[in-house]
Amino acid sequence: MSIAEAHAAHVTALVFGAGAFRDASGADTTFLTDQDLISREERVAAHVQKVLESRGIRFEVRGRSNFAYGVGEVLADQMRVSDLGIASFGPGVDIGKRFVVSGGIFLSGRPLLLVPPGHAASSYPSRVILSWDASPAAVRSVHGALPFIKRAEEVTVVSVTDDKEFRPGQSGVELVHLLARHGAHATFRPVQRGRRGVVHAVMDVAREIQADMLVMGAVRHASLHNLVFGSATMDLLDQGPALPTLMAA
């Protein structure tokens, strides 16, 4: 809501059940009947509407428009006619939430901002870190994040130069030049992963500069590739983001 207020945005709140929830103890996952889901959706939608009205934000509240969709397609379908998706996402989420977020990232064509539980995404993050490998996904994530990047006090472009998939294409230095033409205050930071994963190498820099937003491309590989070579995208989704993270595929 704070992002919507700062950017004079229209909010579409998407409310639907994913088919399971944790009970009050957090110990078990309970599967609900269709009627239970509808009842919960109606209560949540009423609460969301009340809160948005109290903030004076332009909004609409939508449910799942077509139950023929798989759960992973619902968010993606709404994001296709939006500028940005936002979802709470952390470690240990149930499989339904994982499908929803994966659909938003890989099927929508739009950027998705993942916010760790208990975090408030800054309307205008002051220190943004960009994970750059010159891939199409990285390009889309950077351009999706431009409204935040242009207002940030500090932008750090990080390239992991000893990654097995490092692309010798347009360098982070050239990206810094582009961002400067957009009015951003950007610098380039090459790093090496060593024995760490790519996400760990980037997050070490994020912690050092006290970044409050990470921007990175998302790439979906075959399962065998992930097993043999690893995947920065899957590592981040498995661990959950440590700070608000904007991703695009």
Rank of each mutant, 00 (worst) to 15 (best):
M1W: 02
S2Y: 10
A4F: 01
E5Q: 08
A6W: 10
H7A: 14
H7L: 13
H10Y: 11
V11E: 04
V11A: 03
A13Q: 04
A13R: 08
A13V: 11
L14D: 02
A18K: 07
G19N: 02
A20Q: 09
S25T: 15
G26H: 12
G26I: 10
D28W: 09
T29V: 15
L32T: 11
T33P: 06
Q35K: 14
L37H: 05
S39W: 11
R43W: 11
V44D: 05
V48D: 01
V48K: 00
V48T: 01
V51T: 14
E53S: 14
R55M: 03
F59L: 07
F59Q: 10
E60A: 11
R64Y: 06
N66R: 15
F67G: 08
A68T: 15
A68G: 14
A68E: 14
Y69E: 07
G72V: 00
E73P: 08
A76G: 00
D77L: 06
Q78Y: 14
R80H: 10
R80N: 11
V81F: 11
S82A: 12
L84Q: 02
A87V: 13
P91W: 10
D94L: 15
I95M: 12
G96T: 07
K97P: 00
R98M: 06
F99M: 08
V100I: 12
V101F: 00
G103Q: 03
G104F: 01
I105V: 09
F106H: 07
G109Q: 12
R110F: 03
R110M: 06
P111Q: 07
P111N: 11
L112A: 12
P117A: 08
P117S: 09
G118S: 10
G118V: 13
H119C: 07
S122F: 07
S126K: 15
V128A: 00
V128N: 03
W132L: 01
V139T: 05
V142G: 05
G144V: 02
G144A: 03
G144R: 00
A145M: 05
P147Q: 12
K150Y: 08
A152R: 09
A152K: 06
E153M: 09
T156L: 09
V158K: 03
V158C: 09
T161R: 07
D162P: 00
D163L: 00
K164I: 07
E165D: 10
R167Q: 09
S171D: 11
S171K: 00
G172W: 03
V173E: 10
L175G: 04
L179G: 02
H182D: 14
G183T: 08
R189T: 10
P190A: 15
P190M: 12
V191A: 03
V199C: 03
V199P: 00
H200K: 05
H200T: 09
A201F: 04
A201P: 03
V202P: 04
M203C: 08
E208L: 13
I209K: 07
I209P: 02
A211D: 00
A211E: 03
L214I: 04
V215S: 01
A218G: 04
A218S: 06
V219D: 08
V219L: 13
R220A: 13
H221R: 15
A222H: 10
A222K: 11
H225V: 14
L227P: 01
L227A: 12
V228T: 11
V228M: 12
G230P: 05
G230T: 02
G230D: 02
A232D: 05
T233E: 04
T233D: 05
M234T: 12
M234H: 10
L237V: 04
L237A: 01
L243C: 02
L246R: 05
A248I: 06
